[in-house]
């Protein structure tokens, strides 16, 4: 999956305008980044890549880039 697809889905989850996410944003800067968004992201990655991400590892993520890296690390496992 391309980063742009991941960003586009995050924008849907976080109810942001398309093209808003560039990759270096702090997650806490998004008003809708909460446990529900976390669940939606886990479901999206599970559904599209068949990868199980644990909430604990995602809760450590500070930026969009950290989320991307968490997904990439699983692909490379």
């Amino acid at each position: 999956m391309k980063k742009s697809e991941l960003y586009a889905n995050l924008e849907v989850i976080l109810e942001l305008e398309p093209g808003t996410i560039r990759g270096d944003e702090e997650l806490e800067s998004f008003a809708d980044w909460n446990s529900l968004a976390l669940i939606s992201f886990i479901a999206f990655v599970d559904g599209t890549l068949n990868i199980s991400l644990s909430p604990q590892e995602l809760q450590r993520a500070k930026t969009v880039g950290d989320l991307t890296n968490a997904v990439r690390a699983k692909i490379e496992d």
Binding site: I42, A43, S52, S54, P55, Q59
Partner: peptide, 8 residues
């Protein structure tokens, strides 16, 4: 309830 843990 830890919703994200229950979900996974």
């Amino acid at each position: 309830m830890n919703g994200s843990e229950i979900f996974t």
